[in-house]
């Protein structure tokens, strides 16, 4: 199989690497497709593979109930499995599943761990990314504890918008209800409110983002913090 070319990748972690650091991972990267709702890391099972997301999104959700509530979101900025592997958790109590189908580059845990042991640049990038992921999950806790559903929905839409191309998100209210951990009727009402204010346009199974700034204004700082940490620590902004 031909080696993956760095310049053609969408994954922002892989793109930011110097060619010689990327070369250390390159032989172990395998392109995989992620199907909608596919579980990529199951709860309480050893994490054997990590996934650099190219397109699509993976949700990190609570798993102790049939009702999954999303606590984290990983797209082309990220590496699925980074936290349990970097912090030596071996397994994770959470479920990681594809929330939007797409492509990823998988890497075996052992090859990945060997590379980060040997290469301090890769190790540092990984730890910085883990920090950003923890900040994101912390901000989710803040949003759940302190914000109205309109604010939480606005945050979630902005996070999805960052991780997809174009302004249109394809999703059902039922799905949003699962992600946000609220009744579907609550989601429908929150969407109606955002739409009435001209922030989004809702069509059947689709939401179009019209005004990011005005969505941002609803998020009370719960959106933007992990994104700024990512820019500061990973992309050197």
């Amino acid at each position: 199989m031909p080696l993956t070319q760095q310049s053609k990748l969408c994954n922002r972690l892989l793109r930011v690497l110097a060619p010689e650091d990327f070369a250390q991972l390159q032989p172990y990267l395998e392109p995989v497709s992620l199907q909608l709702r596919e579980v990529v890391i199951a709860p309480d099972a050893p994490v054997e593979e990590l996934f650099f997301i190219e397109t699509g999104m993976v949700s990190i959700s609570t798993a102790h109930d049939e009702r999954r509530i999303e606590v984290g979101l990983v797209g082309r900025e990220g590496l699925v499995g980074a936290v349990p592997v970097a912090l030596d958790g071996v397994t994770t109590p959470h479920v990681y599943f594809a929330q939007l189908s797409g492509e990823a580059l998988s890497i075996g845990r052992e090859a990945f761990c060997a590379a980060i042991r040997e290469n301090p640049v890769l190790r540092r990038l990984l730890l910085r990314y883990v920090h950003v992921q923890i900040v994101q999950i912390t901000q989710t806790a803040y949003a759940h504890a302190s914000m109205s559903l309109e604010g939480r929905l606005a945050r979630w839409l902005l996070m999805c918008h960052d991780r997809t191309d174009g302004d249109e998100l394809v999703l059902t209210h039922e799905f949003l209800s699962m992600m946000l951990g609220v009744q579907r009727a609550g989601v429908t009402l929150a969407i109606q409110n955002l739409e009435g204010a001209g922030r989004i346009r809702a069509k059947r199974r689709r939401i179009e983002i019209l005004d990011r700034d005005r969505l941002l204004a609803l998020t009370n700082g719960s959106y933007g913090t992990p994104e700024a940490e990512y820019a500061r620590l990973i992309e050197g902004a």
């Binding site: 914000m147 109205s148 609550g186 929150a190």
Partner: peptide
């Protein structure tokens, strides 16, 4: 469930 757990600006 909405009464118990959900806060909306508009309600």
């Amino acid at each position: 469930d909405l009464i118990a757990r959900t806060r909306l600006h508009s309600v």
